[in-house]
Design a protein around this nucleic acid. Structure first.
Lengths: 330, 330
DNA sequence: CTGAAAGCGCTTACAG
DNA sequence: CTGAAAGCGCTTACAG
């Protein structure tokens, strides 16, 4: 491995001068600098990020703690985070928790030790104290998609509004029996969606039909099972609001197996629309969210906090709104 | 930040003794050890991975270089990698290249500098020399899904066989005009699939209909566009072999828009089946691959190479076979 | 403008 | 069984 020392030797200067030249941290005589740069090129020297990190107390790495990567909006969010992080010279460390508090705890404990400078998390909500400790200890923490703790900055979507609007939208179409496929109320987004749904129903004078099982919530099978449950609870069902796209895909499958026509007999909307909605056989109406942008913004906020001097920057909360995109399913 | 020094002071021993106790690297008197452990607990000390890494010349991190995370098999593969890596105490660094050789190059250059101990890559094939250099320099390199370089270990799928079998399968069903949605031949998997398809057609005495555009290849839109192209080139088409699931989803959409019944008029199969196939409205027949397991195996191989003394371990190539799962689309 | 020294937090021969 | 010292590769006051 080529080190600063090798470069210094070849350029006949001290390592400190090489360091200064490379970091532009102080004036170095142009001729000296040129000689150093030549040596760097000749040896194809690359600074050791570890040593640099140790010395500077920085890792140039952001940890991303999410429930699940495959077939969820988190894959797209993660790409957004990675893009921004890379721009700033930061690497992205991935941690899939499967929404298991114990796994999440283990990851957080690992991350806090000099593994990363900041953490972006879509958490289970079961490690609030640990997360606050981490923030207090000086790491930048940003919540994404799930605002479980108001004391910690977040980038989320207006879930309540989106569920409210979706329900109203169906009522406008004449639906009277509107069902909701939701997730565990322990997670803020699901709770808020439920509130929006309920608020709309109340205003409309309609009664609720909901289905919600245990984790994992972000899956097609979950949507399938919940749809079957909704139909059992309310055979008159004429509309389904699904929290996420994957649930919606499962719902379409379940409805097809039951020989129920979409949208003629049952209308369907997803509250977390992504690209796939447009490409389904029955394309899916959705409240679309800019997932990648959410990731980018979260990264930017996190990087800001990493850069700031104050130990615990005041929490900022960014809420995106979703946009109705009508397709065949409604 | 709590350091070894703090623990040593509290336990009234030297830092070296604390280090030995914590790493079980030498005998430490049980009483001393107990005292140390108590101090560790009291201060909730956590070793600094950076310093440890610098000293040991290890990062305990694996870099994962893939084209795209969202809606591809790589999300699942990445989860498999992460799981195995975590078991071994390794973290996982994500790099999305978008199959752009320049971005890939930039990432590889960053990774080689002490950023990681090993790299698992689904590469573009355009940075072969760099990748070999990296391997020679002592990093463990493992190819996943795409075996672009026979000198570097790989975990892949028998793409040729899978395309061959899929084509034969359709012929057995009486299809005569079997089309292929493929990707760029620069990528090994697409090339091999084409070879398998051709071989089968030759044996069957059938003629080919293929569609293939430029990148990005792993998308639904790509499948949609290719299907339209196939239908234009061959209106008699009675079967479509799609390289990956997302292409298949796009194909189903295109066929629906053209009012072509699946499987009555055109049959469809995906060569890289994952969970979503079962949940589509017209569930998709596929040659299923154990994506997560591929990721796990690649991680295990990479970790083995990281652990081995030899600088450049001899290349091993693991080839998974895919399994036909019949569903409604065929 | 540049060198010499100290130090980031750890591990590992080397003594004893 | 344990301490003291050296060193991983870097950066940054401190002199001059």
């Amino acid at each position: 491995m080529v080190t600063l020392k090798d470069v210094a030797k070849l350029a006949c200067v001290d390592v400190s001068t090489v360091s200064r030249a490379l970091n532009n941290s102080a004036y170095v005589h142009p001729e000296t600098k040129a000689r150093i740069m030549e040596a760097v090129k000749e040896l194809s020297y690359q600074p050791n990020v570890l040593a640099k990190g140790l010395r500077e107390g920085k890792r140039h790495t952001i940890g991303v703690v999410i429930p699940h990567l495959h077939m969820t909006t988190f894959a797209e969010i993660t790409q957004g985070i990675e893009e921004e992080a890379t721009k700033a010279g930061y690497a992205t460390l991935i941690c899939n928790t499967g929404d298991d508090p114990a796994i999440e705890k283990a990851y957080l404990n690992r991350l806090r030790n000099g593994f990363v400078d900041g953490i972006i998390i879509a958490g289970t909500g079961s490690n609030k104290k640990l997360l606050r400790d981490i923030q207090v200890s000086g790491l930048a923490v940003t919540q994404i998609m799930r605002k479980q703790d108001p004391e910690i900055s977040s980038v989320t979507v207006g879930y309540k509004t989106s569920a409210y609007e979706a329900t109203k939208y169906f009522a406008d179409k004449g639906c009277k029996q509107i069902g909701l496929i939701n997730g565990t109320m322990k997670l803020a987004p699901y709770k808020e969606r439920y509130q929006g749904y309920q608020k709309a129903l109340k205003e409309l004078g309609l009664t609720e039909t909901t289905a919600e099982f245990d984790n994992p919530v972000n899956t097609m099978n979950y949507g399938y099972d919940c749809t079957m449950e909704l139909l059992r609870r309310n055979p008159q069902l004429d509309a389904i609001v699904a929290a996420v796209d994957t649930q919606g895909i499962g719902a379409l499958r379940a409805l097809k197996e039951k020989n129920i026509k979409v949208p003629e007999e049952v209308r369907l909307i997803s509250l977390t629309g992504q690209a796939i909605g447009a490409m389904l056989e029955t394309s899916m109406t959705a409240m679309e969210i800019p997932a990648k942008e959410l990731g980018e913004k979260a990264a930017v906020m996190n990087l800001e906090d990493i850069g700031s001097k104050t130990k615990k920057p005041s929490a900022r909360h960014l809420v995106y709104s979703s946009v109705l995109v009508e397709r065949e399913s409604s």
